[in-house]
Design a protein around this nucleic acid. Structure first.
Length: 577
RNA sequence: GCGCUUGUAGCUCAAUUGGAUAGAGCGCCUGACUUCGGAUCAGGAGGUUGAGGGUUCAACUCCUUCCGGGCGCACCA
């Protein structure tokens, strides 16, 4: 139940009535009219901008129009206590306490569905995220995008959309050849005692490759590793298998579960690249040509080659993009276009890609290709997750590719845990660089928003424990005949904003709003809790060691929201800390 | 040079998809507490939202021109 949507509907009905009678002129669309949360200082529950939107068209001042409309609105609703018009023309609605009693009854009786938007059409989404090269463990750089993608999926799922989570495995191309060679040299190091060529910059130096090599040797005793050319294909397979095993383990420790892993190599071997290029050729999006050097580039270093290009400039890209290398092999882009054709063929309503900041330059060309393939704009949305700045001992911690100098997901989980990693990584808008302060993240205080929110739940759980009730089970009471106080209504108002929070998070694909909301709700709750210090009436457990029904329901409603919110974020809510 | 992105309190960030007097946390200054439900709370100071122009009843938000930061810019993935 979204009270803002409900009242917006009421208001629109009144507007249509008035316009039928000829008393009001309406624009062709009522989209600009909204029902909002009024700023706290106004002591009001819902506000609408309707008078300001319609004033010009009706040649009346916003205030006059608001006066007329507010009378109409109040006239048809007994639950409204007070309605006021505030400059520059807002109409503010304040409800009687009984409204909030009804409200909490409604959300307690429908606790499973509270927050879900039932008015919107449900879509079938595909979200691709992580898709890190299968050449080693995931590190912090992958982490933020991984969590972002996972939580976006959770929000959409919460809102009853269909979601498929997918990982594109780049198991084809030069990087994979270098990776296989690296594993091979580690095998030689172990089996034939030859030192690993550490100076070869093409190779992957990481120590984890020693483990890969050992695992491969142990489970493939029948293979003779002496001659690389004889076993290169098999070894590639085995090496990728090892890497994927590790990556999946990392994802699992972050609480992330993909539905599909799609292999680039399989797409190529199935000739899906040829097919998609044929398709593009038919539609004149492909031609043989040369790419010019960008301005500022030294012309002497620039080699012009004729190659197969995709006309991404037709869709606003700044240059056309190569599909084929000079040795006729497909570029990464070409197989990615094939992958996106593959996605389109599976008939999703909406495709979402989560990319790291360093791949933002890639967005234009891939959305261009999807537009060319589907003939529709906006079919693919790309979300970029900005960099994470690691801070240790109050100093920035620089990662470099040299071995031992970068932080893996494993390190992160071991040091700060899954919950803190997820909550903090998500706590900020994905568009903004994030400071990840190791010392702060493990701190158990108010400075750490995770614990602040969890502690709220713990406090509620402790009340239930004291009276021998289970917080997790549903509560049923006979009569909702009580009235909430001002302090309590204040929190109920916040609870009424929850569907709006879900809506915005879901529509804008901005899940950071959820931790922010939970923090605000928790803050109100902690304040209320502390009122009990001076005022026994505000304590949940009274002198008779009992909790009255109104308080019990009130606590349950708050804990329900915290639980659903934390479930979406993918973080636990302990009952004791 | 071009493209994307970002600039909000001393610091880290929000701001309800264009709304009202721009809000939190940290830090600073008061105050509650012999752990009672303190992993908490109450109060205070702190702002020309990088700068200018425009659109709008209304701009942190949209457009535009500058300025500063980040990322990217061949056949790598």
């Amino acid at each position: 139940m979204n009270i803002f949507d409900k009242y917006l509907d009421n208001i629109k009905k009144i507007l249509l009535d008035l316009s039928k009678k000829g008393d009001l002129i309406l624009p062709s669309s009522l989209d600009g009219i909204t029902a909002e949360i009024p700023p706290a200082k106004f002591d009001s529950d819902i506000s609408t901008n309707v008078a300001m939107v319609l004033s010009k068209l009706n040649k009346k001042s916003p205030i006059d129009l608001a006066d007329i409309l507010s009378d109409k609105i109040k006239g048809q609703d007994k639950l409204i206590d007070e309605i006021s018009v505030v400059k520059p023309g807002f109409i503010n609605i304040k409800f009687k306490p009984i409204f909030w009693t009804n409200f909490i009854k409604e959300i307690i009786q429908n606790s499973k569905s509270y927050g879900i938007n039932n008015n919107e059409a449900k879509k079938n989404y595909l979200i691709e995220f992580v898709s890190a090269n299968p050449t080693g463990p995931l590190h912090v750089g992958h982490c933020r995008g991984a969590i972002l993608g996972d939580v976006i999926a959770n929000v959409l799922l919460f809102n009853k959309h269909k979601v498929t989570k997918e990982y594109y495995v780049n198991d084809y191309g030069n990087q994979i050849i270098n990776f296989t060679k690296s594993v091979y040299f580690r095998i030689r190091e172990i089996s034939f005692n030859e030192p690993f060529p550490i100076d070869n910059e093409e190779l992957y130096p990481g120590d984890y490759l020693i483990d890969f090599a050992k695992n491969i040797l142990n489970s493939n005793k029948d293979i003779d590793f002496k001659n690389f050319n004889n076993i290169s294909e098999k070894l590639t397979e085995l090496a990728i298998e090892e890497a994927l095993k590790l990556i999946k383990k990392n994802l699992k420790s972050l609480g992330i579960n993909h539905d599909n892993f799609i292999s680039e190599k399989k797409l190529v071997l199935n000739h899906e690249v040829e097919k998609v290029i044929e398709f593009l050729q038919k539609n004149k999006f492909v031609y043989k040509g040369k790419i010019k050097a960008p301005a500022g580039e030294d012309d002497d270093n620039w080699i012009e080659r004729e190659q197969l290009l995709f006309k991404s400039t037709d869709f606003g890209d700044d240059k056309d993009r190569a599909l084929q290398k000079s040795d006729n092999a497909w570029t990464y882009f070409a197989s990615d276009v094939a992958y996106h054709k593959n996605k389109l063929d599976r008939k999703f309503d909406q495709l979402i890609n989560i990319l790291g900041a360093d791949h933002a330059g890639y967005i234009k060309r891939i959305t261009s290709s999807v537009e060319a393939l589907s003939n529709s704009k906006g079919k693919l949305i790309c979300k970029v997750s900005q960099l994470v700045k690691l801070i240790k001992n109050k100093k920035p911690f620089k990662m470099s590719k040299r071995k031992g100098d970068y932080i893996t997901v494993d390190d992160l989980i071991n040091e700060v845990g899954k919950d803190a990693t997820r909550f903090i990584m998500l706590n900020r808008s994905s568009d903004v660089e994030l400071d990840f302060d190791f010392d702060n993240v493990v701190e158990k205080s108010k400075d750490n928003p995770l614990y602040y929110v969890q502690y709220c739940y713990v406090r509620i759980a402790s009340v239930f424990r004291h009276i021998g009730k289970d917080l997790k089970s549903d509560i049923k009471i006979d009569k909702y005949d009580f009235e909430y106080s001002k302090d309590e209504i204040n929190i109920l108002k916040k609870i009424s904003e929850w569907p709006k929070c879900i809506d915005t998070s879901s529509n804008k694909l901005e899940p950071h709003r959820i931790p922010t909301y939970l923090f605000e709700l928790s803050s109100l709750f902690h304040s209320y809790w502390n009122l009990g210090k001076d005022n026994p009436d505000k304590r949940f457990i009274n002198d008779q060691k009992k909790v009255t029904n109104d308080k019990l329901i009130f606590l349950k409603a708050i804990s329900n929201i915290i639980k659903s919110g934390m479930d979406i974020v993918g973080v636990s809510v302990p009952e004791k800390m």
